[in-house]
Simulated assay, not measured.
Amino acid sequence: MEMTYDEMDSRIRSLEPYEQKLKDKICCPDYSGFEKVDYSDKGIKSQVYVMNYLNSPTFDTPGLLKTVYLEKKKRHLFMNKNARFATVEPHVHDWVELGYMYSGSCTQTVGGKEILLKQGQIIILDSGIPHAIGYTDEGDILINMLMEKEFFTYSFFSRLAKMGVITEFLMNAISEQTSHDSFIVFNSEDNRRIQLFMKELICEFLSPTGMEHEIVNNLIALLFSELVNVYEKGKEEKHAGHGKTYVVPIMRYIEENFTHCSLKGTAEKFGLNANYMTTLLKNTTGYTFKELVTGHRLQFAAGMLLNTELACDKIIAASGCGNSTYFYKKFRERYGCLPKDYRKKGKTEN
Rank of each mutant, 00 (worst) to 15 (best):
Y5F: 11
M8F: 06
S14T: 01
S14D: 02
E19K: 00
K21W: 04
D24C: 04
D24N: 05
K25H: 13
S40P: 03
D41I: 03
F59I: 05
L64S: 08
L70D: 10
L70S: 12
K72F: 10
K72P: 07
A86L: 02
H91S: 01
W95M: 15
G99N: 07
Y100K: 01
G128Q: 00
T136Q: 11
D137Y: 06
D137P: 05
G139E: 15
T153D: 04
T153M: 00
F157N: 06
K162G: 10
K162Q: 13
A173T: 03
A173E: 02
E176F: 10
S188P: 04
E189Y: 11
E189Q: 12
N191E: 15
N191M: 06
R192C: 13
Q195T: 11
F197R: 10
K199T: 13
I202N: 01
I202K: 01
S207A: 13
S207R: 09
P208D: 02
P208M: 01
P208T: 01
T209Q: 11
S225H: 13
A240R: 14
G243E: 10
V248I: 12
I250W: 04
E268C: 05
E268R: 14
K269Y: 14
T278D: 13
N283C: 10
T284A: 05
T288A: 02
K290W: 12
R297V: 05
A302H: 03
L306E: 14
A311Y: 13
A318S: 15
S319W: 11
S319D: 11
G320Y: 07
Y326N: 14
Y326C: 10
Y326A: 15
F327M: 04
R334A: 13
L338W: 09
K340N: 12
K345T: 14
K345A: 10
G346T: 03
G346E: 02
K347A: 11
K347C: 12
N350G: 09
